[in-house]
Design a protein around this nucleic acid. Structure first.
Length: 877
RNA sequence: GCGGGCGUGGCGGAACCGGUAGACGCGCCGGACUCAAAAUCCGGUUCUGGUGACAGAGUGUCGGUUCGACUCCGACCGCCCGCACCA
């Protein structure tokens, strides 16, 4: 009598093996069905997957399996973002080689991913550290170089003087190198840049077309690109022995405030500042001080405005007699605009702070809409809004917008040194992308430096430029640079002795085109096949973490454009049509009285009657404190190992849990109770399907017309749930889809429970057959192993993974009678059960006749009755 | 500082275009089965009052629009995220 418990540990591997053997998830490029490309951001092969991966990849897998069932030819590939520093760090620590470490990690993570039961086409697997991949990346680099999309220029970097390496901003902690602890220096190095700024306007404008992206991400990208419209203004420098320069150009977005100018300020590394410093030791010292302070966030935060008067004076463009001093100021950035600004203290807080510190005063020239022009003054808070011009000569009385226009027009028409004094200019915050890294474990930049010929591209036939295997770690500096022979090669042009570029590429380059490579991953001769790219791309649904909202997604969008310009992607404009950013997996924290963090696996949590919870060590029983819920991290030990969960409960339980509870874009709290709930539900579904199988008609039995009430109700519940699950999966609202499956299971259990005699009528048997099959196929994208086992129990010898999505019949869901809630003055008082077709007159009469309505009216006359068809009745008294 | 988002039972969350607030799950309470426990099944569970039918209150706070507001508008409070000397 008792059904055997569903044994996930035994069942799941069996089905995975069958999927594998039958090639169920291999995708053919030539397939004639409509395509659907679903992609999750590929992982870094750190060695172990974590729950965040499980959540991310499960979501993608639900979509892939669902779309497959709906008749799409689905591309769902997986690969490895395999270059990067951790491999080099590991190499230093265990005296291993980055390649060995990385490929071993890939092998174990591949097994872990397979244990989740993801419907991936593993035949398309790629690893970015594979020469077969980075060979093509080098080709792309060379094509970009030929197309003028690559630049080589000097640029400031964070330099770690102990490790002899460049540090990314996030590797600088409190001004020190994260590994060496040495104080980081600002150094100028010659670096390779990809000219992303070429596409700044296009990358910004095209955001509007991405209507299946979260608004938040589009906004973050727009802010990052940071377009501003302004004016370049050249100021005439009064002749001085300090410099030969005759003019100084500034950038401003507020030419309307020109009459409020009190000074000009230039960046410490502005050429004019350097020039003046040669004859002014005080200035040289000030500049050195600014550079030492660096650009770290806290330096900026606490930074007071400091400046140094160069002694130079410039002429105000609207008044030949008016002189303005030129300061070198620590708050002016060299790499935005021209590295020089005019200071208008009344209408810019930075300028005001500076002016107040140096006693420069201020002139208000914009009067706020609600202020009196006669008395408006600025002391501590600058007014940076718009308003009406005052104290501004010919601009007086104009609005800010008019004044901007008028000032720009005048400056364009006046000229100094035969050039217009002002020029309109659109500026972007977005800088070119520096891709040089002084590291070993990355894609070599395929260039050879020759004394005679300069930087020479490696001929395409010589690609890939492979990383040498015999390298040493543990010493400071770049192993490639240190290698005795690798960098010495003849110049491809003149044949003379030359040196290879020893910088490798930023790993963000690797992930900027992998989605395109997946469409034809074994193409030996080219990075992509245009036909395959045009067929598969854009990615229909891309899923990943919000932490990549800016850089990765912007770089990939840039690459798409650069690849289009070099003929690699056909007419593709945007790489990702739909984007979804999922939340994290979080867990509460446990800490012993001694202050040690404890893994959830080492803690037993008890819930007392009434709901109070306390936690105890498994070894020793000591009580530990329960801390706040935080992102799973190794440092706080609040992690749960997917392998252990899968071993204990099975993959379907883990998949079900990460989909349930929270909306997918929000964080999900991992709890032991929740996981157990999911595990129980797996068992419950198995029992329910088993019971239904015993009561149901044989497979293939059609559902007859004119079912008795009980069977009709079952069908109604089934099709109602099916429609909702469809909508929920389409809209990625997995938590609601989960709730629908629960709800249907509850209803079907009740229907089975209501059967009294062992003789079930034919209508009910047919309805149960349909119910069981729909139920199984409905949860199959979410719990694929259980679905296969149930499908077999229902008498099928085919795979559920290959079964088409059941067709929902909307007509079945339509009710003959409707239940209308009746309100009196907006408060619900009763329900009204009526024929579907009842007209408003009949509804009104029936509503007013209700006893509860009359009682609530308390004798007041009815003013009107509002009837919203199929929705509600409101009696207004 | 600038930009964006979010505040709903004990908890995670539902609620379509302004139309029955609290679907579904977790927890808790009660019951059945059992010698007992686990597992399973059934019932209850926003708060207050009432044995009860029922009544009143209720979606961060205050106000507005509306026949009707979790939903729209305004102000405020709290939390979260991103950017941050970008002229």
């Amino acid at each position: 009598m008792d059904v055997e418990r569903y044994n996930a540990r035994e069942v799941e591997p069996r089905w995975r093996e069958l999927w594998d053997r039958s090639g169920t998830f291999l995708t053919q490029n030539g397939d004639s069905r409509p395509k659907y490309y679903v992609l999750e951001m590929f992982p870094y092969p750190s060695g172990r997957i974590h729950m965040g991966h499980v959540r991310n990849y499960t979501m993608g897998d639900v979509i892939a399996r669902y779309k497959r069932a709906r008749g799409f030819n689905v591309l769902h590939p997986m690969g490895w973002d395999a270059f990067g520093m951790p491999a080099e760090n590991a190499a230093m620590q265990n005296n291993s080689h980055p390649a060995g470490w990385t490929y071993a990690n890939i092998a174990s993570m591949r097994e872990q991913l397979k244990a989740i039961g993801l419907s991936l086409d593993w035949s398309r697997e790629i690893a970015t550290c594979d020469p077969g991949y980075y060979k093509h990346q080098q080709k792309l680099f060379l094509d970009f170089l030929a197309a003028g999309l690559v630049d080589r220029k000097r640029s400031k970097v964070n330099w770690d003087p102990v490790d002899h390496t460049v540090l990314a901003n996030e590797q600088v902690i409190d001004g020190r190198g994260w590994r060496s602890g040495a104080i980081v220096e600002q150094r100028e190095l010659t670096q390779w840049f990809l000219k992303i700024s070429t596409f700044a306007e296009e990358l910004l404008a095209s955001l509007d077309t991405l209507d299946r992206w979260p608004e938040k991400v589009r906004l973050m990208q727009a802010n990052w690109i940071g377009r501003s419209e302004g004016l370049l203004i050249r100021f005439e420098i009064l002749p001085t022995p300090r410099t030969a320069a005759t003019e100084l150009e500034v950038y401003t977005t507020r030419p309307d405030t020109l009459f409020g100018a009190k000074f000009l300020a230039i960046a410490p590394d502005h050429p004019l500042a350097q020039d003046c410093a040669e004859s002014d030791p005080g200035l040289a010292a000030f500049i050195a001080e600014c550079q030492q302070r660096g650009t770290s966030a806290e330096a900026v935060e606490t930074g007071e405005k400091k400046g140094y008067d160069t002694g130079l004076r410039v002429r105000h463009p609207f008044d030949v007699e008016w002189r303005l001093p030129v300061y070198v100021a620590n708050f002016v950035l060299m790499d935005y605009g021209t590295g020089a600004v005019f200071g208008c203290p009344a209408h810019d807080q930075r300028d005001l702070d500076f002016a107040n510190a140096y006693g420069l005063g201020n002139i208000p020239v914009i009067c706020p809409p609600d202020a009196d022009p006669a008395t408006f003054k600025v002391t501590e808070i600058a007014y940076d809004g718009e308003g009406t011009l005052i104290n501004s000569g010919f601009l007086d009385g104009l609005s800010s917008a008019q004044a901007k226009e008028e000032a720009a027009r005048r400056l364009e028409e006046s000229s100094i040194g035969n050039h217009p004094q002002g020029r309109r200019k659109v500026n972007y915050r977005l800088r070119d992308w520096g891709v040089s890294r002084q590291r070993y474990w990355g894609c070599p930049i395929p260039v050879i430096h020759c004394e005679a010929c300069g930087a020479v591209p490696v001929p395409a036939a010589d690609l890939p430029v492979e990383l040498p295997k015999d390298v040493t770690f543990g010493e400071p500096g770049n192993p490639l640079d240190r290698h005795p022979t690798w960098k010495h090669v003849p110049c491809p042009t003149c044949g003379g002795p030359a040196l290879r570029e020893t910088d490798t590429m930023d790993t963000f380059v690797d992930s900027s085109w992998y989605f395109a490579r997946f469409t034809d991953p074994r193409n030996e001769t080219a990075p992509t096949s245009v036909a395959a790219v045009e067929h598969w791309l854009p990615v229909d649904q891309y899923i990943g973490g919000i932490e990549h909202a800016i850089l990765h997604l912007l770089y990939a969008r840039f690459f798409t454009r650069a690849m289009q310009a070099t003929g690699h992607v056909g007419a593709l404009k945007e790489p990702f049509d739909g984007l979804f950013t999922q939340g994290m997996v979080v867990h509460e924290t446990y800490r012993s009285p001694a202050g040690d963090w404890l893994y959830p696996a080492d803690v037993r949590v008890e819930t007392q009657a009434g709901g109070a919870r306390s936690a105890f060590r498994l070894d020793g029983g000591e009580e530990v404190s329960i801390g706040p819920i935080e992102k799973m991290s190794k440092s706080k030990r609040n992690t749960v190992d997917p392998d252990e969960i899968i071993l204990a409960y099975g993959a379907d339980t883990a998949r079900w849990f990460v989909l349930s509870d929270s909306p997918p874009e929000r964080d999900v709290i991992w709890t032991e109770e929740g996981v157990q709930g999911s595990a129980k539900f797996v068992q419950r579904l198995w029992r329910l399907v088993d019971e239904l199988a015993g009561l149901a008609a044989p497979p293939g039995t059609p559902v007859p017309q004119g079912l008795p009430e009980g069977a009709a109700a079952v069908r109604k519940a089934v099709h109602g749930a099916l429609i909702k699950v469809e909508e929920d999966i389409e809209r990625l609202r997995f938590n609601r889809a989960v709730a629908q499956v629960h709800d249907l299971a509850n209803k079907l259990s009740a229907a089975v429970g209501a059967i009294e005699s062992p003789e079930v009528d034919a209508g009910m048997r047919a309805a149960f057959r349909e119910a069981a099959e729909v139920l199984v196929l409905m949860f199959a994208p979410m719990m694929p192993h259980l679905a296969e086992e149930c499908w077999a129990r229902l008498g099928h010898s085919t795979l559920a993974a290959n079964a088409p999505w059941p067709a929902a019949d909307r007509a079945i869901v339509v009710e003959d009678t409707i239940t209308l809630p009746v309100q009196v003055n907006g408060k619900k008082r009763a329900d009204l059960v009526l024929d579907r077709g009842a007209d408003t007159l009949a509804i009104e009469a029936a509503a007013l006749a209700l006893e509860q309505v009359q009682r609530a009216l308390e004798g007041r006359p009815v003013k009107k009755v509002i009837i919203v068809p199929q929705r509600i009745v409101n009696v207004v008294a």
